[in-house]
Design a protein around this nucleic acid. Sequence first.
DNA 1: GATATAATACTTGTATACAAGTATACTTAA
DNA 2: TTAAGTATACTTGTATACAAGTATTATATC
Lengths: 243, 243
Amino acid sequence: MTESREFLYPSKWLSKASAGDRVTYELRMRIISGQIESGTILSENKLAIDFAVSRSPIREALKILASENIIRLERMGAVVIGLSEIEIEEIYDVRLLIESFVFERLVRIDTNELIKELSKILEMMKVAIKYSDADEFAYQDVLFHETIIRAANHSYILMIWNNLKPVMESFILLSMRMRFKEKVEDFTRIIKNHELYIEAIRTKDRDLMSKSLHENFDDVQGKVEDLWISQQILSKGVVQQND
Amino acid sequence: MTESREFLYPSKWLSKASAGDRVTYELRMRIISGQIESGTILSENKLAIDFAVSRSPIREALKILASENIIRLERMGAVVIGLSEIEIEEIYDVRLLIESFVFERLVRIDTNELIKELSKILEMMKVAIKYSDADEFAYQDVLFHETIIRAANHSYILMIWNNLKPVMESFILLSMRMRFKEKVEDFTRIIKNHELYIEAIRTKDRDLMSKSLHENFDDVQGKVEDLWISQQILSKGVVQQND
DNA sequence: GATATAATACTTGTATACAAGTATACTTAA
DNA sequence: TTAAGTATACTTGTATACAAGTATTATATC
């Protein structure tokens, strides 16, 4: 059995987190990265030993990951589902659905504050690129979309986002780490797309929004590929440096 | 302190359920029915005593209810959010969003099996009306929509549904119990609307689907009202007979 | 060797114990 | 009477223990 002592999830993001949260975030990363392969059966007891915690935080983690659809709880053991190409496209379907809905709400309200906030986040993203900080970039990228969604002020849409976010975050983290190594040129396009987003919200232009959402969606194909590359990098033992 | 020994959730639906599940379902019903008022602070220990179980199943329940947005976990105690008019409309927004998405998938596949299944459920609903079985009717109503959603074969849309379903189910249960007592004439309309749903799926007619979704949505106003009536009935001590 | 039965090593769900932290109430000193 | 400090009664998160159930393996029987 190959045991990994490296943690995939940025440890500084877990400074105040409980043991349960740590396990949840780390386990999620290992599943999404493919370090724990799809089909693997996870045992509460084994995980408790691996993470050097009791079964309580492990149980908590498994319940959450099951609700995120990346594992499946059965009578005996938790079966890893993971993220295949299909699931990633499905996640983007949902994001498209949510953000389209949100946009329809945004065209009816004042978005000046939101645009200011988004511009700030975009600046942050640029700085993250400048300093090749993949994790920070991923964080700001996720925050960008969350900020838009929050602006719609719709608690049940936010609920969906909260359910989707952790998986998205993990996926984007892995994707961005890989891109900083192998496809830095991608970031120009990503930044441009986010500028388009802001512009669409500012002008309340449905066509422009549709265009930027669509471009983002097209990017999925690339992102799916990213995950494979990311998994290959991991399996080769090229481990990520986080801080 | 007024303690209720009556259970709101149909006990026969919990035959194989764990203590954690029982608490989750019952607590959800009490919150949505308004028996536990919005703003109330729930204590793990007090709940454990009330339900005569340990803190473990209570913790499990609170985590789930928090992910459903009907309570909010804070550093000290869980604050009840409940379902106000706004939340109910929001839930229907999401249902509309999901079912519209699902319909777009259904027009592209063979739906013969689905229609057969839905027709069967509709028959069941009619029988439930005939025997004034509110709980059975609610069950079949929820199942009707779940069956449609499942047919789309989209795991992340199903994930959203799974997150929304318990709250919907509780709400529909309460609403239908009330209607059987106070507004029996409603059921003719509900059945008709479901027939329209099936017809829309059969003919793959977008306009018809939009019409039936819209009618269902218009029904929300009535349903919100239902909850108030339901809450009044509860506060008057008129308790529901379940089996 | 195949089949039934018993022993075992797991599994989950729940109860309980405890540490660390936080709000509330109660002092005590000014 | 008020302010600061202290005690007390809560809170959460985690560890551990245990009961009941379920696979797996070993053993005995045919």
